[in-house]
Computed example of a mutant assay.
Amino acid sequence: MSVEPSAGPHAVASANVPGEPAVQPSEAKATSAAPKGSTALRYSFDGGLSAPIVDAGGRLPLKVRKVAGGELSAVPHAGGLAVRFPPRCDHYGAESCARAILQSGPADFLNPGQADFSYGASVLVKSSETSKGANVMQKGFSVGDSQFKLQVDGVAGRPSCVVVGTGRSTIYVALASRSVADGRWHRIECSRSSALLTVAVDGAVVGQAAIPPSLSIVNTGPLCIGGKGTSANNDQFVGVIDDVFVTRSA
Results as ranks from 00 to 15, higher is better:
Arg168Tyr: 00
Ser193Met: 11
Ser193Tyr: 07
Val155Met: 10
Gly154Met: 10
Ile188Phe: 01
Val162Lys: 06
Arg158His: 13
Ser193Phe: 07
Val152Gln: 10
Trp185His: 03
His186Met: 02
Cys190Tyr: 03
Arg158Val: 06
Thr170His: 04
Val173Pro: 00
Ser194Phe: 15
Thr170Val: 14
Ser179Trp: 05
Cys161Asn: 05
Thr170Ile: 05
Cys190Phe: 03
Arg178Cys: 07
Val155Tyr: 12
Ile171Lys: 00
Ser160Cys: 11
Gly167His: 04
Thr166Ser: 12
Ile171Gly: 00
Val164Lys: 13
Arg158Ser: 13
Ile171Cys: 01
Cys190Asp: 08
Cys190Arg: 04
Trp185Cys: 08
Asp153Lys: 02
Arg168Met: 14
Ala156Glu: 12
Val173Gln: 13
Val155Cys: 07
Thr170Leu: 02
Glu189Pro: 04
Arg187Glu: 11
Val173Ser: 09
Arg184Gly: 06
Ala156Thr: 13
Asp182Cys: 08
Gly165Thr: 02
Asp153Phe: 04
Thr170Ala: 05
Ala181Pro: 02
Ile188Glu: 01
Ser169Trp: 10
Thr166Phe: 07
Gly165His: 01
Gly157Met: 09
Asp182Met: 08
Asp153Ser: 13
Val152Phe: 03
Ser191Thr: 14
Gly165Arg: 03
Val163Met: 15
Arg184Ile: 01
Val163Leu: 09
Ser179Ala: 11
His186Arg: 10
Gly167Trp: 01
Val152Pro: 03
Cys190Trp: 01
Gly154His: 06
Ile171Pro: 00
Ala176Pro: 03
Val152Ile: 15
Arg192Leu: 07
Pro159Arg: 06
Arg187His: 13
Ser169Glu: 15
Val173Asp: 15
Ser193Asp: 10
Tyr172Thr: 04
Val162Ser: 00
Gln151Ala: 15
Arg187Leu: 11
Asp182Gly: 10
Val152Thr: 12
Ala156Val: 12
Ser194His: 14
Val162Phe: 01
Gly154Ala: 09
Gly154Ile: 04
Gly165Cys: 06
Arg192Trp: 00
Tyr172Ala: 01
Val155Arg: 14
Arg178Val: 13
Gly157His: 09
Ser194Lys: 15
Gly183Asp: 11
Val164Tyr: 02
Ala174Asp: 02
Ser179Met: 09
Arg168Pro: 00
Gly154Asn: 07
Arg187Cys: 01
Ser191Ala: 14
Glu189Trp: 05
Gly183Glu: 09
Tyr172Gln: 01
Ser169Phe: 04
Trp185Tyr: 11
Ala176Leu: 06
Arg168Ser: 13
Val180Gly: 08
Arg158Gly: 05
Ser179Gly: 08
Ser169Asn: 15
His186Cys: 03
Arg168Phe: 00
Ala174Gly: 06
Ser177Glu: 07
Leu175Arg: 12
Ala156Arg: 14
Ser194Trp: 14
Tyr172Ile: 03
Ala156Ser: 14
Val163Tyr: 02
Tyr172Cys: 04
Arg184Trp: 10
Tyr172Val: 04
Ala174Gln: 02
Asp153Ala: 12
Arg184His: 14
Val152Glu: 11
Asp153Tyr: 07
Ser169Met: 08
Arg178Asp: 11
Arg184Glu: 12
Val155Thr: 12
Cys161His: 02
Ala174Trp: 05
Cys161Phe: 05
Gln151Ser: 12
Ser191Asp: 10
Ala176Asp: 00
Val152Cys: 04
Val162His: 11
Ala174Asn: 07
Gly154Cys: 10
Cys190Ala: 10
Arg168Gly: 02
Val162Thr: 15
Gly183Ser: 14
Ala181Gln: 03
Asp182Tyr: 05
Arg187Gln: 12
